[in-house]
Amino acid sequence: MAEADVVLIDDDASLASVLAVGFESRGYDLRIAATGGEGLREIERREPDVVILDLGLPDIDGIDVCRHLRQRTTSPIIVLSADGAEDRKVRALDEGADDYLTKPFSMPELLARVRVAVRHRRALAAVAHDEVLSVGDLAVDTAAHEVALAGRPVELTPKEYALLMLLVRNVGKVLTHRAILDQVWGPDQPLDTLRTHVSHLRRKLGGGAGAPQLVTAPGVGYRLLAPGDVVS
């Protein structure tokens, strides 16, 4: 069985060709679509483990493709953008993308992101109905509202708990500042509120080997990564 089934939606034939060699050499199935429309059809045909989506497509705007994809599939979406424009990435993430990478990127970097996405998708599918969610050594008892790290209880304020829950439920996915603020605090909260809580939460989780990492996506948001999944 293939490592994972990946759909690449990118109109740059050269890059697609490089990725085809790279992924297939490592045992992945890579299906290539050169337009947004083709990509959506490819996903309808068979739900992939991961979608890699370039935001600059000839037929449909990448952000719209992202939204359509999200309506049809729960597959993680890794967005590629050639422009450094933060707002495009943020919009893609708000439309349901899980992660992003700016072109030009290195092959190991992309492969690492794909591995993280695949693993978290499988992990999430397995624990969807569990009452105790775990990421590395972190365990969250959602019924008792109790958090433990390597068996030792961690005291959290209600907002810290809500923030952690959101991150744990979306482990591996980049959550934008706006998305986190809206879901934990409600609209119109300043970014500083989030920053303060993130720094408290980081302190309480510590940087131990088995602890999940609360990683900053510069200018975009945050995400929780399992220990060992931390990529540059």
Partner: peptide, 25 residues
């Protein structure tokens, strides 16, 4: 311009890093 320059660069960087990091046939 930066979009134009980055498009071929994306291929070059991905290919070069892959050549360096993996023993291809």
């Amino acid at each position: 311009v930066s979009h134009d320059l980055r498009t071929p660069l994306a291929t070059i960087r991905a290919a070069a890093t892959d050549l360096q990091g993996f023993d291809h046939d």
